[in-house]
Design a protein around this nucleic acid. Structure first.
Length: 787
DNA sequence: TTTAGGG
DNA sequence: CCCTAAA
């Protein structure tokens, strides 16, 4: 272990980061020209088309000033069908969960298992709170586990910030508590200190797993149990994403504290030397305790570090954290505060910004695909002057179906994940390192060209880190592409009004994301505008379909984020900016309980059920809950996850404009099974009823829109007509293609007939009309020719 | 919001 | 897969 000084490290960070504004602008230009949307490398270059299509997109990008707060999210609401809110004790399932997770990841570990694991023990001691982190390494499967122990002193801390974080690139877990106590919402998660950070590279290599446990949870329980208002609990969080905190393609900084009160930082500058190959060469940078303050930890380009005032201790080191496998840590008992006698609705709230990303979060492999594709646009690679090691999905495709969805799903907690794609002027050495890393990594981690990956615990954390650090000093323009807030469960009487539901959700969301948001209630996808109606009147009841209820999350112009940062510039978020949670009192009378979704929503057994079995497809929120339920965890999870994409380096003074840059969706080739479902549906429904086809065969495949299906049919027809030699991609059985042609011919004929009829219909009407008119006029003239 | 088609 | 006119 090598120990160096922080300042030195930081200096290196600056250099390494190489954030140059001017260069950045130029690069953006190029990137736009070359394609910025990360569309998968086409089999055949279509430069002209690409150029053509880039224009509008470019415009959009240009217009897109910082829109980090243009949060437009869709919230999938769920009505849980639990009969009543019974207290759930969920201290028992962890082992099972863990083993499951571990099992699921063995394969992956094996793959990367050429690296020996490293044992790390880190203790965190801060502000009278002590956390002991110990990682046990199993050499056989490279299992890594960590446990946190609260020191007794924690008990004395009213606002215990039981937030321990262990992160590794490949896996990390974090726990936190988000609670609404005495009418206040406290999001401890947001203040999660970063206890241990292991570089993704390191951990990935070792395929580490970290188990995080709170052994001494008495105080927490007591605290929660005393709560008689709302309690939202966040226990654990797993981010299916593997992105580590990577600044400018460099390994993330690892931060840990040992029992002696020192903080160690792993990686980054030190890491550069060993990265990516020698993952065992973890170096430790020890700094003063004061330096612990995270925010400035791994963010290279911080000229003026935001010195976190020793606030709530745990808030200090919390800037970076990666979590991939989140184990639901059902350690804390749910606070039970049900209004006995009242029929309660439990609403699960899942926020996602972007359908693609949402899917991605649900499915790690899908995510990887997305990310790798996005980060590796062919042209971008070209631009960056280094060829991709794995152009295709090599690493991705090698991934088994089994190895992930569940883990990522189970870990419903994903730390706030912020991905920032920045324009960077990188040094060749870095590129080389990356290259070599690319070749080693089969998990999509190769996407570091010009990309900044960051993990944050919390949206606010993200804001603080990225906005204050990058925006303030480097004018990085970015946008939030996706984020996931904690999944919350709220219970609300059916007799409550829409307005109160909105308030409740708002409170929960606000606790996570801060203010400035407006909540809308959607039923069957349509907005419910009457706030005064009760849920029952509106039709929101537990008898409803679970997915019928949704929420929209939109910016509230009247409440800007600035309000949370008094005195600060709009774009500046000091590290210590307290989370605004406490400002939002819980609504009395409403019971908010967060508990792990244990409901089993029946899978739609439509003929496209297999659609979701495709590992390419991303489980819908429904699926998530389904899968999660298998963990039998009752833990409540709140896991903010967020993806932020840096768009450009632009003058900071440019005011942000509400414009969304729509990223092109990832390419998801239809599997044969999907094709079959499509064919079958079309045979039955015919062409021209794509919505019905979608509902019938692809209802569970959220990523297949009816337009997609229509397009696929189009290509299928085309494919069927061309010679097999001309076909590309996964071969579709000839039998299916024959059916395609048959069905297409049939329905085309039907359509023609229909049109013929419809053409004739008006004509006959017209004739009839004319004849009638004529007849009447003639009758006026006293002449009748028609009968 | 869907369909239909061109790109 | 995107974009959009048109329904």
């Amino acid at each position: 272990m090598v120990t160096t000084n922080t300042s030195g490290k930081r200096g290196q960070c600056y250099k390494a980061l190489g954030f140059k504004q001017k260069v950045g602008c130029m690069e953006l230009q190029k990137r736009l020209d070359y394609g910025f949307n990360g569309y998968q490398v086409p089999a055949t270059p279509r430069a002209t088309r690409s150029a053509r299509k880039r224009v509008p997109f470019k415009k959009r990008v240009e217009e897109n000033r910082i829109s980090a707060f243009d949060l437009l999210a869709t919230v999938a609401g769920k009505l849980l069908l639990d009969k009543e809110s019974t207290p759930v004790s969920s201290n028992t399932s962890s082992a099972e969960d863990q083993s499951k997770v571990e099992k699921n990841t063995v394969k992956e570990e094996r793959r990367d298992g050429n690296q020996s694991s490293k044992l790390e023990t880190c203790d965190q001691y801060r502000n009278g709170r002590e956390f002991i982190v110990s990682q046990h390494v199993s050499q056989t499967n490279d299992l890594r586990s960590c446990s946190f122990r609260e020191s007794p002193s924690l008990k004395n801390d009213t606002h215990f910030g039981l937030t321990s974080v262990v992160t590794t690139s490949d896996c990390s877990e974090r726990s936190g508590v988000l609670k609404l106590t005495n009418g206040k919402i406290k999001n401890e998660t947001g203040c999660l200190p970063c206890k241990v950070e292991t570089s993704p590279f390191l951990c990935r290599a070792s395929g580490g797993r970290i188990k995080l446990e709170f052994e001494n949870k008495g105080p927490i329980h007591e605290e929660l149990d005393r709560t008689d208002k709302l309690s939202i609990r966040e226990v654990a969080d797993t981010c299916p994403l593997e992105d580590p905190v990577v600044v400018d393609g460099k390994p993330p900084l690892l931060v840990s504290s040992d029992s002696s009160g020192k903080t160690h930082s792993y990686g980054f500058n030190n890491h550069l030397s060993s990265f990516p190959g020698k993952r065992d060469d973890l170096k430790v940078v020890s700094r003063d305790d004061d330096e612990k303050s995270s925010g400035c930890t791994y963010l290279g380009p911080i000229k003026k570090p935001f010195r976190p005032t020793p606030l709530i201790g745990d808030r200090r080191i919390r800037k970076t954290m990666t979590s991939k496998y989140l184990k639901v840590a059902p350690r804390l008992n749910d606070v039970t505060l049900s209004n006995s006698g009242t029929r309660l609705l439990k609403v699960k709230i899942i926020l996602t910004l972007n359908e693609n990303l949402k899917s991605a979060y649900c499915n790690r492999s899908a995510y990887k695909r997305i990310r790798s594709e996005r980060n590796y646009p062919f042209k971008k690679r070209k631009f960056l002057h280094y060829s991709s090691v794995s152009n295709s999905d090599g690493g991705i495709s090698s991934e088994g179906i089994s190895d992930s969805p569940e883990q990522s799903i189970n870990g419903n907690a994903s730390g706030v994940y912020a991905k920032m794609r920045g324009v960077t002027g990188e040094s060749p050495s870095l590129a080389d390192q990356r290259k070599s890393f690319h070749s080693r990594d089969s998990h999509g981690m190769r996407a570091f060209d010009g990309v900044i990956h960051m993990y944050c615990f919390h949206l606010l954390t993200f804001k603080e880190v990225l906005i204050s650090k990058y925006l303030s000093f480097y004018s990085v323009k970015f946008r939030i592409k996706s984020f996931r807030v904690p999944e919350l469960f709220i219970e609300i009487p059916e007799s409550a009004t829409i307005g109160s539901l909105k308030r409740t959700v708002m409170e929960a969301v606000t606790a996570i994301l801060g203010g400035g948001l407006r909540i809308g209630v959607l039923l069957q996808g349509k907005k419910v505008r009457d706030d005064n109606k009760t849920l029952l009147q509106t039709g929101i009841s537990r008898d409803n379909q679970m997915d019928a209820l949704g929420f929209s999350l939109e910016p509230n112009p009247s409440q800007t984020f600035q309000s949370h940062c008094p005195g600060g510039s709009p774009l500046t978020f000091p590290c210590d900016t307290p989370l605004p949670l406490a400002r939002y009192p819980a609504t009395p009378g409403l019971v908010t309980r967060v508990k792990h979704d244990s409901s089993h929503e029946p899978h739609m057994p439509n003929l496209g059920h297999f659609v979701e079995s495709d590992h390419d497809s991303a489980p819908s929120p429904t699926d998530m809950s389904l899968d999660k339920s298998t963990t039998d965890s009752k833990a409540l999870v709140a896991v903010p996850a967020m993806t932020v994409e840096a768009l450009d380096v632009v003058p900071a003074h440019r005011k942000s404009k509400r414009s969304e840059v729509v990223q092109r969706r990832i390419r998801r080739p239809f599997s044969v099974a999907e094709v079959e479902a499509l064919v079958q549906a079309v045979e039955k429904l015919g062409t021209g009823r794509w919505r019905d086809v979608k509902l019938r065969a692809f209802d569970n495949a959220k990523h297949r829109t009816y337009v997609d299906l229509k397009d696929k049919w189009k290509t299928l027809v085309h494919t069927a007509r061309i010679s097999p030699q001309q076909r590309r991609g996964e071969p579709v059985p000839q039998e299916l293609l024959d059916r395609v042609l048959t069905a297409h011919a049939y329905w085309s004929q039907q359509q023609a007939k229909q049109q013929l009829k419809q053409q004739q219909q008006p004509e006959s009407c017209l004739l009839l009309y004319n004849s009638t008119v004529r007849a009447s006029s003639r009758s006026d003239g006293g002449e009748k020719n028609f009968g």
